[in-house]
Amino acid sequence: MKVCDIIEKLGLTVFSGEQGLDREITGGYTSDLLSDVMGNSEEGQVWITLQTHKNVMAVASLKDVAAIIIVKGFQPEEGTINQSNDEDIPLLGTDMEAFEVSGRLYELLNN
């Protein structure tokens, strides 16, 4: 499954990083602790978080995640958006909470 497929299926907003929409998804990781994501996420996962600042993109790009979903309707900061465009890592958004969007993504990826 590609990033563009989950956007449609989960009704996600695309903030930036459109060039990366055909990235392949291998799984997901839900966490708001950057060192946890740094240590435990894997390449190709979708990272689900409520963090909106630029360091999120630094972690995402070092770990080569497929995309980031910002939950609960939070808006990414401008620096985050710019770096997402530079790195071609899509920054997505939803009004859902982390629990719900994680569950729905899990279901999509495992069916």
Binding site: D32, L34, S35, M38, T49, N55
Partner: peptide, 11 residues
């Protein structure tokens, strides 16, 4: 900001 988990040095 999501730092301060005390996981950096272990990582």
């Amino acid at each position: 900001m999501g730092f301060g988990a005390g996981m950096g040095l272990p990582n």
